[in-house]
C-alpha cells in the first residue's frame, strides 16, 4: 500500500529525514517511535504533502503511484489521512459542516455525487457514538475551545467519517487521560480492517498497550535504526532510546 524508498527531506536546506525506507501493507499497523527531534512529525507531514518540506531524494509510493506531485487534498482524496498533533481551531465552522465539506469535496474529486443528507446524518450519528462524542459537541466550532482530549477524539472522529485507506496518527496519545486514550484506541481498533492500514507515530509506548502494532520502527536522527515486532516497543519503554543510540554507535 505505502512504500517509502530512501526518503530524504528537509526544510529550508536543512535535511531532517536522511534516507527512510518503510513498507506498509493493507491490514497492518505500524508504529514509528523516536525521541523528540528525530523527525517523526516531519515524516508524517511529508507523507500528507505539506508543501513547506522538500523531498530531495527518494520517493513515497502509495497504491503504486508516486505522491511527489500531489497536493495535500489530492492525497486525501486517494485515502491518506493524517491525525494532527495540534489540530487547528476554525471558529464559525461547526464540526458537522466541516465534515460535510470534507466528505463531499472528496466525493466530488472521486467523481461521486454528494452524500445524501440522511446518509450523512446517519453516518455522523454512528461514528460519534463509536467515539462517545456528545451530539452538542458536533455543532460547536471546529476545535475552538476544545480540550486537548476533545481535539484528539475529534481527529479520530474525522478519520472514522472519512474512512481512509491509510491513517497516520501523529502523537495522538499525547495530552490524553486514560479514559480518552481508551476511547480513541477503541475507535482505531474498531475501524481496522484488512483493507486499511494505520501508522502510529509516538514518543511513548503507552498507546501501544491499547493498539497492538504488527511492526515497530525506531526513528533516530532522520533514519530508521531498528525495526521489529510489538516487543520492541516494550524494550524501548524499559531501556529508553539511549540503549539504541549506544547500540548504533557500537555497530
Amino acid at each position: 500500500m505505502l512504500k517509502i524508498n530512501n526518503l530524504h527531506a528537509g526544510v529550508e536546506g536543512k535535511e531532517i529525514l536522511k534516507g527512510i525506507g518503510i513498507e506498509v501493507n493493507a491490514g497492518e499497523i505500524h508504529a514509528i517511535m523516536g525521541p523528540n527531534g528525530s523527525g517523526k512529525s516531519t515524516l508524517s507531514s511529508v507523507i500528507a504533502g505539506k508543501e513547506e518540506f522538500e523531498v530531495t531524494e527518494g520517493n513515497i509510493v502509495f497504491e503504486g503511484e508516486d505522491l511527489d506531485e500531489l497536493s495535500p487534498e489530492e492525497r486525501a482524496h486517494k485515502g491518506i489521512f493524517l491525525s494532527f498533533q495540534y489540530p487547528v481551531e476554525i471558529p464559525g465552522v461547526s464540526v458537522t459542516n466541516f465534515m460535510k465539506t470534507a466528505i463531499n469535496e472528496t466525493r466530488k474529486a472521486q467523481g461521486l455525487e454528494e452524500m445524501p443528507a440522511s446518509e450523512m446524518l446517519k453516518k455522523i450519528r454512528e461514528k460519534s457514538e463509536l467515539l462517545e462524542i456528545d451530539r452538542k459537541f458536533l455543532s460547536r466550532s471546529l476545535n475552538e475551545g476544545f480540550s486537548g482530549g476533545e481535539k484528539k477524539r475529534n481527529e479520530i472522529f474525522q478519520m472514522a467519517m472519512l474512512e481512509p485507506r491509510l491513517a497516520i496518527l501523529d502523537e495522538t496519545d499525547s495530552g490524553l487521560d486514560i479514559d480518552a486514550l481508551r476511547i480513541v484506541a477503541n475507535g482505531v481498533n474498531r475501524l481496522r480492517s484488512k483493507d486499511n492500514a494505520v501508522v502510529l507515530i509516538t514518543h511513548y509506548q503507552r498507546l501501544l498497550d491499547y493498539i497492538i502494532p504488527d511492526f515497530v520502527h525506531v526513528l533516530l536522527d532522520g533514519k530508521i535504526v531498528k525495526s521489529g515486532g510489538a516487543e520492541l516497543a516494550h524494550e524501548l519503554e524499559e531501556k529508553g532510546y539511549d540503549w539504541i543510540k549506544q547500540e548504533k554507535v557500537s555497530n
Binding site: 507531514s45 500528507a48 504533502g49 505539506k50 508543501e51 513547506e52 497536493s71 495535500p72 487534498e73 492525497r75 486525501a76 482524496h77 489521512f81 493524517l82 494532527f84 495540534y86 489540530p87 487547528v88 481551531e89 476554525i90 471558529p91 464559525g92 465552522v93 466541516f98 465539506t101 470534507a102 466528505i103 469535496e105 472528496t106 474529486a109 474525522q158 472519512l162
Partner: peptide, 28 residues
C-alpha cells in the same frame, strides 16, 4: 499555512480551504 494544510489534508481544496479560513477570521 499550518491551518491551510490542516484543511487540505482533509480533502478540502486550497481555494475552499482559504475561504474557510477567511471566514473563520471574520467570524466574530
Amino acid at each position: 499555512e499550518d491551518a491551510l494544510f490542516y484543511l487540505r489534508s482533509r480533502g478540502i481544496p486550497a481555494k475552499e480551504a482559504k475561504a474557510l479560513l477567511m471566514y473563520a477570521f471574520a467570524n466574530n
